[in-house]
Amino acid sequence: MDLYQHFRPEEQPFIDQVLDWKDQVERNYIPVVSDFLDPREQLIFKSIIGQDENLQLSFNGGYEYAERKRAFLAPFYETVDFDDFNISILQGTYASKFVSLSHRDLLGTIMSLGLHRKKLGDLVVKEGQFQIICDQDLALYLKMNVEKIKNTRITLKEVDETNVLKPIHHWQDQEGTVSSTRLDVVLKEIYQISRQKAQTFIEKEAVKVNHRVVNNPSFQLESGDLISLKSYGRSKIVDLLGETRKNKVRIKTAKLK
C-alpha cells in the first residue's frame, strides 16, 4: 500500500492499528478510543484520517497542551466530551521539605509495577504534589499499589479535569539548515555539539526518540519526533520545511528550557 511509503517501516504496526480503528468506526458506527499516544503517533493518526468528512478525530490528554494524548475516533455526528476519553487524574502529595521528587522517580515507581507506558499520559510533578494522568481502568490499581516513592509514603486521590496541574513548558524555537535529517546531524544542530560527540551519545544509548532508545546515528527524523539527550534535555522536530537550492534541509526545532 502506497500509504506505508510515507512513514518508517517500524511504524507500520501502528498504521495498521489506525486503519483497523477506522474500519471499525465506518462499519459499526461505534467510536473507538486509543491508548495514550506520543506526538509522532498523533501526527500519523491525523495524516491517515485526513479530511474524511464522515469521521471526526479528537485528542485529549487531560489538559490542552498535554504531550501524550488519547485519540477518540467517531462518526461525524457524535458529540465528544472529556468523559469519552476514559481518563483519570490521580493526585498525590509529598513532603518537599524532606524529599526531592522528579518525573523520573515517579515514572520509575509506576513502571516497576510492570505496567505498559501506553496506559499512562503525562506525569506532572510540582513542589509538594504530583499528578498521574492515566486510563480509568488503571486508576484503582495505582491507588492500591503506589504507596511509596523514594521511601516516602504517599496517598493518591482522584481529581477532576478542572484541577489538573499544568506544567509550565518553555520551548525555544529555532530554524536552521542541516545536510540531512540523520539523528547525529540534527543532534549536532540542536545541542551545538560535534557530530562525533553526537554519535558517541547515540552509541552509548543516551538518546531517545519518542521515548525509545535509538542507537543508530543514521536514524531519519520526521516531523513530530520528540528527542531526549541524557544530561542535555529534551527537544522536538516541529516541522521539516523543505530543501534549499543547495539541497540542504530547512528544519524547525524546539528545545525545552
Rank of each mutant, 00 (worst) to 15 (best):
L3W: 00
I133C: 12
Q91N: 13
C134R: 13
G224D: 10
L256G: 09
P39M: 10
V32S: 07
K255I: 12
A139P: 10
F72W: 06
L37K: 07
P9E: 15
D16Q: 13
K119P: 00
E189Q: 14
D173M: 07
N210S: 02
L106D: 05
L226K: 15
L142W: 01
I168C: 03
D38H: 14
I87S: 06
F98D: 15
T253D: 06
D135Y: 04
T79F: 06
L226A: 08
N163K: 11
G242H: 10
L90E: 05
H211E: 12
R40P: 08
E175H: 02
E205R: 14
A254T: 06
Q129V: 09
H103W: 10
L19H: 03
L115E: 09
V146I: 15
F76K: 05
L101I: 15
V186F: 06
Q199P: 02
N86C: 05
F219H: 07
S34P: 06
K204C: 06
S179Q: 07
G121M: 03
L113Q: 02
V207Q: 11
L240Q: 10
K148R: 15
I132E: 15
I227E: 03
K119R: 12
R27C: 10
E147G: 06
S180R: 01
E189I: 06
A254Y: 04
S96L: 00
E158F: 10
L138Y: 09
H170K: 14
H169W: 06
I44T: 03
Q172H: 14
I44A: 03
G128E: 13
P9I: 08
F98S: 09
F82T: 10
R40V: 01
R195F: 07
Y94G: 05
D137E: 14
N151I: 03
I15H: 02
L165T: 06
M144Q: 14
E175D: 10
L73M: 11
L55D: 05
L256K: 07
H211I: 04
K230N: 12
R245C: 00
D160E: 15
V185T: 15
T253M: 08
Q5H: 09
I132G: 09
Y94N: 07
R104D: 11
H6I: 01
S100K: 14
I149R: 07
V186P: 06
H116S: 11
I49P: 02
L229P: 07
N145A: 12
S179P: 05
K204S: 08
L138N: 11
Q51G: 02
L229T: 04
L106I: 12
D20S: 13
L241N: 11
H169K: 14
V213Q: 05
D160H: 05
I44Y: 01
Y191D: 08
S180G: 01
L156G: 12
